[in-house]
Nucleic acid binder design. Structure first.
Lengths: 175, 175
DNA sequence: TCCTGGCTTAGAGTTCACTCTCAGGTTCAA
DNA sequence: TTGAACCTGAGAGTGAACTCTAAGCCAGGA
């Protein structure tokens, strides 16, 4: 049971162009070819394709994916190296998730910030808002974020800059 | 208290080049300038910068970040739009995290796969491994992954392809 | 037999987000 | 006053990952 590049493309949600590009980059050495050079994908190739997708979606560059494919092509002798590769990738993905979680916190804070500002009609509420009015989760996020972004001002500007001449304060609007 | 582009760059971990590039792209309309045109960052600009970083780290393209900055510059009238923007971004980040979690599962499965193959000396163990030998978590991941990747074969190849001529089976090695 | 549509390769073009080079201006410290 | 170390804008270059074009081949149906 063989599939052409177009059929596979539809199946896994990539364009035939992209699949040929991967092929050119050496990511698909496992696909068979017909006499006339047409790529013939077989069912067992899907496993490779899903693995490629997985590594791609977790931010691995194509040349690193190729390195993995090449290890796979060499057979059982490279199992240890492949294990190491996936362990490193596991670590990286966990870091990515942690980073996104941290940014999600910032975004949640801003959602609350704008919700509050919206019902007050102005961002200025946040200058006078009482600590008790802030939801627990938001208070926690805000504290954590402040600890991270603390600028102690001990390393102030090393160069004096002339005071701007009658420039209206451009950054008057809060974010 | 003003900072030059180089000082800010050091503080937030970007290059002065990058900061000027952002400036050129219209991401920093809030920074003051000296008489001679030197960028003068103030403490309150950090809030904007951290927000830009947040949106960038969560995959928002520069032109969309600019759209947000522009809304911010317009003041309180755009609070509703900014709220909507952050709500959409929240949704996207949650999706990104879910996607990474799914891929992390695949990676965990492969870690187990190679660990097992390593101690057996060959990937071939996985053709004969008993269901009870598979850890609970792995079994669960594998089932979920199989449900997702199910290829029912009902939409087989639409074009006949000549059987390849004595081509050795290239994809013999499992992944 | 010819048309259609999908396949092939090589290679050029695109988009994004930087990243760097250049030529010149500004500021401070010695 | 002079040198170092910044700064400026314009614009070219980079690398990653596509994305598309061109010219041509091949199989099946009207």
């Amino acid at each position: 049971m063989y599939y052409t590049v177009g059929e596979i493309a539809k199946e896994i949600g990539l364009s035939p162009h992209t699949l040929r590009f991967y092929s050119k980059e050496g990511l698909l050495p496992f696909v068979d070819r017909s006499e006339s050079g047409v790529r013939m994908f077989k069912d067992s190739d899907f496993e490779w394709l899903f693995l490629i997708e997985c590594l791609k979606k977790t931010g691995m560059p194509i040349k690193d994916i190729k390195a993995f494919i090449d290890l796979g092509m060499q057979g059982d002798g490279t199992i240890g190296q492949r294990l190491e590769l996936f362990r490193r990738q596991k670590q990286r993905v966990e870091e990515q998730i942690a980073e996104l979680q941290a940014q999600l916190d910032v975004i949640k804070y801003k959602c609350w910030y704008y919700e509050t500002a919206k019902s007050a009609g102005t961002c200025a509420v946040h200058e006078t808002i009482a600590e008790e009015e802030i939801p627990q989760e938001i208070r926690y996020i805000r504290e954590k974020s402040r600890r991270m972004h603390r600028l102690d001002g001990t390393n102030g500007p090393s160069r004096a800059i002339k005071i701007p001449k009658a420039s209206e304060p451009s950054g008057a609007a809060g974010c």
